[in-house]
Computed example of a mutant assay.
Amino acid sequence: MKYNSLFSSYLNCSNDSEVFEYFQTTLTDSITVWNYFVDWQKVLKKFADMEIHLNTLNYLIGKDNIEEEFAKLLEISPQIVSVIPILIACRTATFQILTDYESGKFSYKSFNFQRQTSLSPSEIEDILEFTRKTGLLELFAKKTIKSIPDYVLGIEVGLDTNARKNRGGNTMEVILETLIRDICEQNNLLYISQATSEKIKTAWNIDVEVDKSSRRFDFAVRNQENLYLIEANFYGGGGSKLKATAGEYKTLFDFLSKQGHKFIWVTDGLGWKTALRPLEETFRYIDYTLNLNMVIRGLLQELITITD
């Protein structure tokens, strides 16, 4: 960390060791907001796209001769095959099932649930086999599932929880963008979110070489003299990725500094408590590493409004 007199006035820290101590003792334990739990807009959109087919399948609930009834339903409404994968919480439309491995060889059978306008008798038999052997038909016949639409809505909610990790990362960007937007409006600065080298060149005619073609900086801010490239992330839990992330930003800092651009890393979360050594190494190496507490206290504003 490049020590700056700002750290004395804003944080009451007299050297970089004290700044790091302040940083790691003010890490935020949570940035969970209400939409972290379920993205209802996405869930309900997916549900609406298949609701008619689910209601058609609901005809099967409680049927004694369920295979016969299902075969008739498939003849009348072959499009319903497209929703069968979601009944077993899968997004894929094709399956390669290992049907035999005890005879000394592996035997497979393929199943295709892409939407179709008609089904042959053999295709219908395959669908019956799949739903029978995965246990779905028994659940429907015994009324273990009383409403297929309600059942699938529950599956969609469950699958959506897999996206929580991404929403956590997005929340950090949303929070930081709100703060950066305010800073820029107050100081007549310009900023770009998800800034690629092409966006920066188009907007400001500034060349930024990137270390990899997929590089998107979370934010780019321009004042009269400098271009600030900002990366943001939040780690609520530990893991091996933290050490790699810290090392990546040391390399990125060197790469951008050689071009004369400024780099600021805004990171937070108690996950860093499990990786303080690599964090401190990067903290001491690159010019500016901030957490949300430091941003809110005004340090980011001071840094990006400095003119050399």
Rank of each mutant, 00 (worst) to 15 (best):
T144L: 15
T144S: 15
T144K: 14
T144F: 12
I145S: 01
I148W: 00
I148T: 00
P149A: 02
Y151F: 10
Y151L: 02
L153M: 08
E156W: 03
V157Q: 07
D160L: 03
N162M: 09
A163G: 08
R164F: 09
R164Q: 11
K165C: 07
N166M: 13
N166L: 13
R167Y: 02
G169S: 09
G169V: 06
N170G: 15
T171R: 15
M172Y: 07
V174K: 13
E177G: 08
I180M: 06
R181D: 09
R181P: 03
I183F: 04
C184T: 05
E185Q: 14
E185C: 11
N187L: 05
N188M: 14
L189D: 00
L189W: 04
I192H: 02
S193M: 09
Q194D: 13
A195L: 03
A195T: 02
T196L: 05
T196E: 02
S197C: 14
S197E: 12
E198G: 10
E198K: 15
I200W: 03
K201I: 05
T202W: 07
W204D: 01
W204V: 01
I206V: 11
V208A: 02
E209P: 08
E209H: 13
E209I: 11
E209R: 15
V210I: 14
V210N: 10
D211H: 15
K212L: 12
K212E: 12
K212I: 08
S213F: 14
S213V: 08
S214K: 11
S214F: 13
R215F: 05
R216K: 13
D218T: 06
F219E: 01
R222E: 06
Q224I: 09
E225D: 04
N226C: 09
